[in-house]
Write a protein that binds this DNA or RNA. Structure first.
Lengths: 113, 113
DNA sequence: ACAATATATTCAAATATTATTATATTTTTA
DNA sequence: TAAAAATATAATAATATTTGAATATATTGT
């Protein structure tokens, strides 16, 4: 099992709009670079860089199909992350129940301004 | 409901070792800055900076208790993210079934080296 | 009012991330 | 085997993130 540190690194890698779009496509199925170029509004080298970064972290991998590189998902945490990003949440968590104790004080006092 | 872009921003903010430690404590309950200083191996100003960043993004908030600031969780996505980070996964996703079609080619060909 | 405590802010330096441009590599097809 | 298609790599420039040091602010107790 991967360390917490590695998982945090992974989360950071994934937390980028272009890379989320890429992964959103890949959960649906295999795609090659040109497929990505069509719907990502960025240059081909930039697509390649994002794909290469994702591969370096083991998030995705590819098969060769002639001169095409067919990318697919490899890390099983990805579908869960994507689902989380789309899940609906209530606006705010309930304020903590009165009065848990911190090392230094008792909660709560006045609400901040 | 928050936009996908905002959620990705949030994910990026959260994806930092110190901030994950802070949030890991806050899911357990209210904590003040000195409490954090005890187990985070960083300076007081740096603790403050991380807390301030998390608050700027609405992840946490605080109550005043005398001269203490008692921080607590505010964004309901946080417990889910923390849980995901600890969830156990199988090593790799199953290779995609033969042969989904990309715009440009058919999958799969040779496995990469 | 003054000192002490708890915490925040500001600025700068170090580092990391991102996108751009130009060029290279690989495979297929003619 | 040369041209093309598909994709990668490298170098650079722009920007953002992170930390550290110094200083500031606010609240309480005396």
């Amino acid at each position: 099992m991967r360390s917490l540190g590695k998982r945090i690194e992974l989360l950071k890698i994934v937390a980028h709009p272009v890379r989320i779009k890429i992964l959103d496509e890949l959960v649906k199925g295999v795609k090659c670079v040109t497929d990505f170029e069509e719907f990502l509004d960025i240059s081909q080298p930039n697509v390649s860089q994002h794909l290469s970064l994702l591969r370096r972290y083991g998030v995705i991998d590819y098969y060769m199909d002639g001169r095409l590189r067919c990318y697919f998902l490899r890390d099983p945490i990805i579908p869960d992350i994507l689902e989380l990003l789309k899940k609906d949440y209530i606006e705010e968590m309930p304020a903590p129940a009165c009065c848990p104790v911190t090392k230094k004080g008792k909660y709560p006092g006045k609400r901040r301004g």
